Amino acid sequence: MSVSVGRSLACSCSSSSFVNYNSTNKRAFGTSGRCYRSSRFLKTAIKAQQRPTWLPGLDPPPYLDGTLVGDFGFDPLGLGEDPKSLKWYVQAELVHSRFAMAGVAGILFTDLLRVTGISDLPVWYEAGATKFSFASTRTLFIVQLLLMGFAETKRYMDFTNPGSQAKEGSFFGLEAALEGLEPGYPGGPLLNPLGLAKDIKNAHEWKLKEIKNGRLAMVAMLGIIVQANVTHVGPIDNLVKHLSNPWHQTIIQTLSGSGS
């Protein structure tokens, strides 16, 4: 980058003018001010290059200025141009990331128990049709609907009015146990038992790790769904099959139909 910078400056001004710019005589550049503009452009270019983006050399959109956690300038559809929509999308991505991380962990763990014979569990995409003896499907659905609806309503209310759900009497007297830190980041001994990132406003590293792992989990969840649709087995079954013959049991053979 230094070489290209030197060439761009040399095209618009002489070396002596470049030296004089660092002194008090700024008129040495001439009346056109080309070197001054080049210097400002250079500072902007260096600042842009120092910020990592999802595609090297990409010029991020102006509304993604790097202040958001995990902002790498990725918005090809321009969904975040509206500030209100961007704020909502940030929270939506965070929630989907957490669901994806929990889902991937649950699928892999239960699939491992099933494949090893430790527990007689259904494959993950058939778990929803399983009949349980302790409650009917309708009862489980209603209970889940009420619990999830309550939690999501509280989350939305805290999003629209930050801090409102931490007020005394807003959660049956359990506000202190939850200790909402900021929208999207509840805490307290119930939701943050390890006491991580207590200073949530300065916990940029923890937030970045979470969103990165969450995005990876969403991609992994998409992969698990696709492989289940193609192979009709769980992810651990696919892994065992691949390890049994790594050179011939691959995604290429599977998609082409020669690996079956």
Results as ranks from 00 to 15, higher is better:
Phe109Tyr: 11
Gly163Trp: 01
Gly128Asn: 10
Lys47Asn: 12
Gly103Glu: 01
Gly6Ser: 03
Trp124Cys: 02
Asn161Gln: 13
Leu55Phe: 06
Gln50Asn: 09
Gly214Thr: 06
Pro193Asp: 06
Asp59Arg: 09
His248Asn: 15
Phe18Glu: 01
Arg37Ala: 11
Val233Thr: 15
His248Gly: 14
Glu179Thr: 09
Lys212Gly: 11
Ser38Arg: 14
Lys201Gly: 00
Gly259His: 07
Asn238Met: 08
Leu42Pro: 00
Ser119Glu: 11
Leu112His: 10
Asn229Ala: 15
Tyr156Leu: 14
Gly149Lys: 14
Ser258Lys: 09
Pro56Trp: 02
Ser14Cys: 10
Gly117Leu: 03
Ser38Cys: 10
Glu210Gln: 14
Glu205Gly: 13
Ser12Asp: 02
Gly169Asn: 08
Phe171Glu: 00
Cys35Phe: 08
His232Phe: 04
Arg34Ile: 10
Val219Ser: 11
His204Arg: 09
Pro60Asp: 01
Ser16Met: 02
Ala102Arg: 06
Val115Asp: 05
Arg138Asn: 06
Ala10Pro: 01
Ala220Glu: 00
Trp124Leu: 01
Glu175Ala: 02
Trp124Ala: 06
Arg7Met: 06
Glu179Arg: 13
Ala105Thr: 14
Pro193Trp: 00
Trp88Phe: 14
His248Tyr: 06
Pro122Trp: 12
Leu239Gly: 13
Thr231Trp: 13
Lys87Ile: 06
Gly66Trp: 04
Thr24Trp: 15
Gln165Gly: 03
Phe72Trp: 14
Ala45Met: 03
Gly6Val: 05
Ala151Pro: 02
Phe141Arg: 15
Gln249Thr: 11
Glu182Val: 02
Ser38Val: 11
Pro246Gln: 10
Gln50Glu: 01
Ile251Asn: 05
Arg155Leu: 14
Phe141His: 08
Lys131Ile: 01
Gly169Glu: 04
Thr31Ser: 07
Ser23Asn: 10
Ile142Met: 11
Leu113Pro: 07
Ser258His: 12
Asp111Met: 00
Ile211Lys: 10
Gly128Asp: 03
Gly106Ile: 04
Asp111Lys: 00
Pro186Arg: 04
Ile236Pro: 04
Glu175Cys: 03
Glu175Met: 04
Phe74Tyr: 13
Ala129Cys: 07
Gly117Ile: 05
Gly117Met: 02
Val230Met: 10
Leu196Gly: 10
Thr254Tyr: 07
Gln165Met: 15
Leu145Trp: 11
Val90Thr: 13
Phe134Asn: 14
Ser97Gln: 15
Tyr89Ser: 04
Ser170Ala: 13
Ile118His: 12
Pro122Ile: 06
Phe159His: 13
Leu194Phe: 07
Met148Pro: 01
Thr139Arg: 15
Thr44Lys: 03
Ile252Asp: 08
Asn245Leu: 03
Leu64Lys: 08
Tyr185Leu: 11
Ala92Gly: 08
Asn213Ser: 12
Gly73Phe: 07
Leu140Trp: 07
Trp247Ile: 14
Gly57Ile: 03
Ser16Gln: 09
Asn25Lys: 13
